[in-house]
């Protein structure tokens, strides 16, 4: 780990002042940044310990859930209101990491976690995300876990979050504060595709800090699921995951939302494909067709070609679970 200076602000304003230094990094739960510092992937000159900022509350007002950036993944997932009214969010969080990591990891940190691409983590290799312009070792390399949608010739990394896949379906808003004041970023615009700037995971500006995530009440009742497929049953990143939610009225689909994890540089939504489900019957033939539609432009990299078929089947299965009101159980893992 490199040597750095350390400050511990008590207010958001002081934190933003400290984060004006382009070599500063905000530290919350530490589960990703400390790991990256040990690998010499992150080499901050200044660590800004934001754990004392007053961003730890979970507020439910009317139909909105507002989660402070420093709320831990555990506190959020097990909060009684979240369990009762935002169960898709709870389910996705509990599908990720381990209880120890969820106790430390924060809401803001989950959004800002970096990719788990092996080459990004290995400073002895070329990686455009870690060292812009150096090339991408994953293209033509070991790429079993990599992207099948939205990748570029510069980067085929995927965003590793489970929680963010649910937030994409739930239509969350990211509240940020920076040198220019406060602003709100719709969740779909928060993470970005790699293009020719894979070093940028998201649309935060220099010096901006996430202060909260706001989430409207879902309209889909029990017609949701979070289905995560991985190399072992627990404590592993998704090869493919699907958050699915359906509004069903009088036996037909009124609205649908589908987001994929583990397949792209951001949680992947295809609004056009979602809209194609409107007015249709919630049945396997329809689900298989929309799955094909979502994967129509998918491109494998060799070792991850299997993900295209896996994602197609996972979408159809997740929609069947949602239609049946049978969300995936994250403990016994039996896929119904």
């Amino acid at each position: 780990m490199n040597r750095y200076d350390y400050v511990r602000p008590d207010t958001v304003a002081d934190a933003i002042t400290a984060l004006a230094n382009p070599d500063a990094r905000a530290l919350a739960g530490g589960t990703n940044l400390v790991d990256l510092m040990k690998y010499d992937v992150a080499r901050p000159a200044l660590v800004v310990d934001i754990n004392r900022l007053p961003l730890k509350s979970i507020e439910v007002s009317g139909d909105k859930l507002r989660v402070g950036a420093l709320v831990s993944n555990s506190d959020l997932a097990w909060h009684p209101d979240v369990q009762a009214r935002w169960p898709l969010l709870a389910s996705a969080i509990l599908a990720g990491a381990s209880p120890q990591l969820r106790n430390a990891a924060t809401t803001g940190g989950n959004l800002l976690q970096r990719t788990r691409c092996y080459y990004f983590y290995d400073p002895s290799t070329a990686c455009n995300k870690r060292a812009p312009g150096s090339g991408c070792s994953a293209i033509g390399g070991v790429n079993r876990i990599h992207a099948i949608l939205g990748a570029s010739s510069a980067c085929i990394a995927v965003h590793p979050s489970d929680m963010c896949v649910a937030l994409a379906v739930l239509g969350a808003t990211v509240e940020v504060e920076g040198p220019q004041g406060q602003r709100e970023i719709p969740f779909a615009e928060f993470h970005r595709l790699p293009g020719d700037m894979p070093e940028r995971d998201n649309t935060l500006q220099q010096g901006e800090l996430i202060t909260a995530v706001a989430i409207p009440a879902p309209q889909f009742g029990s017609h949701f699921t979070y289905l995560k497929l991985r190399d072992r049953l627990s404590y592993a990143f998704a090869l493919v995951s699907v958050a699915a939610a359906l509004q069903i009225e009088n036996g037909t689909i009124k609205d649908a939302r589908i987001a994929l994890g583990g397949v792209a540089h951001k949680p992947w939504r295809d609004v056009e494909a979602e809209q194609s489900l409107r007015g249709q019957a919630p049945e396997p033939r329809v689900f298989e067709a929309v799955a094909q539609l979502i994967l129509r432009d998918a491109k494998g990299q060799g070792e991850n070609d299997f993900k295209i078929e896996l994602a197609t089947r996972a979408i159809a299965r997740a929609l069947a679970q949602a239609a049946a009101g049978m969300p995936q159980n994250q403990s016994d893992k039996v896929i119904q």
């Binding site: 350390y6 511990r8 530290l27 530490g30 589960t31 400390v34 790991d35 660590v47 310990d49 754990n51 555990s74 209880p99 120890q100 990591l101 106790n103 430390a104």
Partner: peptide
Amino acid sequence: GQRINSCLQLAVT
């Protein structure tokens, strides 16, 4: 009281 991986916690925090 909460279980946490101590390897990923900076002691100062």
